[in-house]
């Protein structure tokens, strides 16, 4: 399927050396604790909470995002929290490559694998683990601590297994994210 070219306002987006495109209208807290792998797009109104770091000293990475990811309009990435051995702390979140997070979704997962598509208006609960090659349908609520296995489609509230994805999912999602990045071009 041929997708249309998406134009953006050149003044709104900052492009880094590694090809990340970050909207100036997004809120990025604690940017020194956030790693973007390259060619990742962060659109208008996103919130990434890099300030909610692990207690204890030293340099810590709070949010690590891989290559060719898309954080669509108004999505929120915030690390999960819990008390462990009586100490309250937020814990780091890792997102793989070729991950699409839909508009208005709220992600508090511990790990998201590579080649994952999350639909619009989803809520991914605290410490959920989403493995590689998954699809979370629009408006899904994944409860805290859920493990979503590879090649599965989840939907509903609370999110439940619905269907499985074909073996070619990896190639499909890789092409999709690369295509989106290539077509996300400035208007001038």
């Amino acid at each position: 399927m041929e997708t249309p070219v998406i134009y953006y306002d050149r003044a709104e987006y900052i492009e880094t050396d590694t090809g990340n495109k970050v909207s100036r209208k997004s809120v990025i807290c604690g940017s020194q604790n956030i790693i973007l792998g390259g060619k990742t797009i962060i659109q208008t109104g996103c919130v990434i909470r890099g300030d909610l770091r692990r207690t204890g000293g030293g340099h810590t990475v709070v949010v690590a995002i891989g290559r060719y990811c898309l954080l669509a309009h108004g999505s929120i990435i915030r690390p999960p929290y819990k008390t462990y051995k009586g100490i309250f702390s937020y814990y780091p979140m890792k997102i793989g490559d070729h991950v699409t997070i839909g508009e208005g979704s709220i992600v508090q997962a511990a790990t998201i694998g590579s080649y994952v598509t999350i639909g619009k208006n989803c809520v991914i609960g605290r410490f959920a683990i989403i493995k590689d090659c998954c699809c979370i349908a629009d408006n899904t609520i994944i409860p805290p601590n859920t493990v979503v296995p590879s090649f599965s489609i989840y939907d509903g509230s609370p999110g439940a297994y619905r269907d499985e994805l074909p073996e070619c999912t990896q190639e499909l999602y890789e092409l999709k994210t690369k295509d989106y990045y290539a077509k996300f071009t400035p208007r001038d």
Partner: peptide, 18 residues
Amino acid sequence: SLHLRHLEYLREMLPKYN
């Protein structure tokens, strides 16, 4: 106690980055 610790954490951490 989780709620209290959460508040304590935020009170300490938020001013460092915001």
